[in-house]
């Protein structure tokens, strides 16, 4: 907006949802510290979907587990809404690489366990409704009462997605969530994920090996250099508008440009 009236319109300061400040991770070894990450700086804005891509062992999983609170921070800070994190918590939901469902519970019970933690004061019906809503969104309304270990790997990961969204987290952390699936199922689940995400717009940070997945899902792709002392090597903004559709993205002329950019970085 132009300053037509003469009074300055103060732009609301955009506060990052997630911020890493001078983040360092070292593991002590007999021969001195092994530095995985060093002085990493990264800001992720609300409603942003960020993919982190890099070779195995570059410390991207370490980064994600630190954000989740499952791994100690050696130095620096991780801030959520400008407040430093203290340990793990459901406001930073994680979709793990292995679906990590409890095999002795049904699909519904697996989701309900988390929902009851987050909405302890809701009535039983409200809690169940939340679970059913998200399980429906991932296409599992028919499998509510099946034991988790009777589901295929792909269905288990659908439950994993429902479980994470049902927590209504501030931040969604995805640790190569589709890495264990075959390519057909992977594409299905990417669509499922994007469909829910387009509705909920939860700030998301995803780790992946897969160049196409990184582009398809993210607003920004962060490329990490190989460790030790891994750092952010390059950042690529993906300008496709949302909601995205796989077919039109694959046919988009920019797609191959983005793809080449990422592959050039990874093969450097």
């Amino acid at each position: 907006m132009k300053q037509s009236t003469g009074t300055a319109i103060v732009q609301p300061r955009r506060v990052p949802m997630l911020e890493m400040r001078d983040l360092t991770k070292k593991y002590p070894t007999p021969k001195g510290d092994y530095v995985v990450l060093e002085d990493l700086q990264l800001k992720i804005m609300p409603e942003e979907f960020v993919s982190i891509i890099g070779h195995s062992g570059c410390g991207k999983t370490t980064l994600l587990t630190m954000i989740a609170g499952l791994n100690e921070i050696s130095d620096g800070d991780i801030l959520v809404n400008e407040l430093p994190i203290l340990g793990p918590g459901p406001e930073r939901a994680v979709i793990f690489q292995a679906p990590s469902l409890f095999p002795w519970m049904t699909t519904l019970e697996n989701v309900l366990l988390g929902v009851r933690q987050v909405f302890p004061h809701g009535t039983k019906k409200e809690q169940l409704d939340i679970c059913k809503y998200y399980l429906n969104r991932v296409g599992l309304s028919e499998a509510l009462d099946r034991k988790a270990n009777q589901l295929s790997q792909g269905m288990q990961q659908r439950v994993g997605i429902a479980r994470a969204f049902a927590l209504k987290p501030k931040i969604l952390l995805l640790d190569e969530p589709f890495g264990m699936l075959d390519s057909l199922t992977r594409a299905d689940l990417q669509d499922v994920l994007l469909e829910i995400w387009d509705k909920e717009k939860i700030t998301a940070l995803q780790i992946t090996h897969d160049v196409d997945e990184a582009i398809f899902l993210a607003d920004r792709v962060i490329m990490m250099t190989s460790g030790p002392r891994a750092q952010i090597g390059d950042i690529l903004k993906i300008e496709f508008k949302r909601p995205r559709d796989r077919k039109s993205i694959l046919n988009h002329p920019d797609y191959y440009h983005y793809r080449k950019h990422l592959i050039d970085f990874l093969e450097r």
Binding site: G139, L140, E142, A143, N149, Q150, S152, Q153, G154, M155, R158, M180, L181, D182, L184, T185, D188, V192
Partner: peptide
């Protein structure tokens, strides 16, 4: 949902296939 009915998943731990 496609993988719900026609199981196309290749499960690494196919205990319950």
């Amino acid at each position: 949902m496609s993988d719900f009915t026609i199981s196309v998943d290749k499960k690494p731990f196919a205990l319950f296939d």
